[in-house]
Write a protein that binds this DNA or RNA. Structure first.
Length: 413
DNA sequence: TCTGGGGTCCTAGGACCC
DNA sequence: TCTGGGGTCCTAGGACCC
């Protein structure tokens, strides 16, 4: 056996972190032991289940479904509002703890990490239980640890039975432990692909593993070959310690009411552009592609993007381009969600040199000034006048102000 | 009171060039 | 007056992840 990887996954992350926080602040009930969820606020149309306790799961409550449906299944459900800055702290604390054992850590998402534990060839099980015990005792929440010789199998293993468990899934265990599982349990097989595969009789991971490569490629192209090798347990990537470059930055919001006027649409798009621009400048990046997406009252999606001749980074420019695109796609139907994002990012140093135009210079100084104030005193301190008498937030988007930008995940592990 | 927000990657089709 | 094919860039849309 060449290498050993761990995949460490927080059990019901947001809910566990709320429970740990509550208990450590004098609370007397453990949310994990009653039917409870972390969820959004339905009055602003953010009402979905973000995380659920195991007792809530027993009622059939599912992550991603509306609170309305969840409450139908379990009327006594306790609903806890989300506090993202707490989750970032909890996640950081967990990574610090794991760093006692290795510096080969890849943060895969807020509640998952991969580690290369090849140095613990002899006693990986002991190390795993030590990490799991330390997290429980010091931080107050539990994790699942999956162990294997590649990251894919480690990730599949951590998903077996929960909570607070350690599982191995080495190559010689694939046939017995992974192949009998439902095809939908395989990494990268979502609901659409699962349905497609089952339509042709491929019901388990083992069924897929034994299919013919040509047949799968002709049918499902590149993603098909990807899941085929996953089904066979083939995956070769290393833990990447260094952060990958960011490919895009975007913010979106579901509006508290259906938007029907150009004035309100403008405010939402400006608020989102403010956050996107702020994050872009914080990374010292600029963008060549600007995109707007909207979802209307009956959930139809539309999007439009444009590649510019020159990269930009000012809020005003992002907003102007986004508005042009918006006007091209909006037919006047009521809107419930806006999103503004930028991609084709490059370092802004080269651009600054070529920036001789006066408006750019002005925009830059203005943005820098506003960014500094917002970083120091918060995003509410400087507000464009258009927001003064509206109920719309002047800066819209969910990335915490002090958070570092780090890429969340890749298709390939 | 029904349905979030942050991402990455892939494909298909059209435009354009040689 | 036609016909062709490869390569690249761009956009829209969709699938998946947490």
């Amino acid at each position: 056996m060449d290498k050993i990887f761990f995949h460490i996954d927080v059990n019901s992350a947001y809910l566990s972190w709320e429970a740990a926080y509550h208990l450590s602040h004098g609370g007397d009930i453990d949310y994990r032991e009653i039917p409870s969820i972390v969820g959004g606020d339905p009055t602003t149309r953010h009402g979905i289940v973000l995380a659920k306790s195991i007792p809530a799961k027993a009622y059939g409550v599912q992550t991603g479904e509306s609170l309305y449906m969840a409450l139908n299944k379990c009327p006594d459900l306790l609903i806890i509002p989300a506090h993202f800055s707490r989750y970032i702290k909890a996640s950081d604390a967990m990574v610090d703890l794991i760093a006692r054992y290795t510096d080969k850590i890849q943060r895969y998402s807020i509640d998952e990490v991969f580690t290369d534990m090849s140095i613990y060839k002899k006693d990986y099980l002991k190390v795993a239980s030590e990490i799991s015990k330390n997290i429980k005792e010091e931080l107050g929440f539990t994790v699942n640890i999956g162990i294997s010789e590649n990251k894919l199998l480690a990730k599949m293993a951590s998903d077996f039975s929960k909570p607070d468990k350690i599982h191995t899934l080495f190559k010689d265990e694939i046939e017995s432990k992974m192949w009998p599982l439902d095809i939908g349990d395989l990494f990268m097989v979502g609901s659409r692909t699962s349905k497609k595969l089952k339509g042709r009789g491929i019901k388990t991971i083992g069924d897929l593993a034994n299919m013919d490569d040509e047949y799968i490629y002709t049918w499902l192209k590149k993603p098909g070959l990807q899941i085929l090798s996953y089904a066979r347990g083939e995956e070769f990537s290393d833990v990447h310690i260094e952060m990958d470059e960011i490919k895009s930055i975007g913010n979106s919001t579901t509006t508290p009411f259906d938007v029907t006027t150009m004035e309100d649409a403008e405010r939402f798009i400006l608020g989102l552009s403010e956050m996107v621009g702020f994050r872009l400048r914080r990374e010292n990046m600029c963008a060549e592609v600007i995109r707007i997406s909207i979802k209307n009252f009956d959930f139809m999606k539309k999007r439009r993007q444009i590649k510019l001749n020159a990269p930009i980074y000012s809020t005003t420019r992002i907003f102007e381009v986004a508005m042009e695109l918006f006007k091209e796609i909006w037919g006047g139907d009521p809107i419930r969600k806006f999103s503004v994002s930028v991609s084709d990012l490059t370092s802004n140093e080269a651009v600054q040199l070529s920036m001789f135009e006066e408006t750019y210079e002005k925009d830059k100084n203005f943005d820098t000034c506003v960014d500094n104030i917002r970083r120091k005193y918060g995003s509410k301190e400087v507000v464009r006048s258009t927001f003064l008498y509206s109920k719309i937030e002047p800066v819209i988007g969910g990335v915490a102000e002090d958070a570092k930008e780090y890429p969340m995940m890749k298709i390939l592990l």
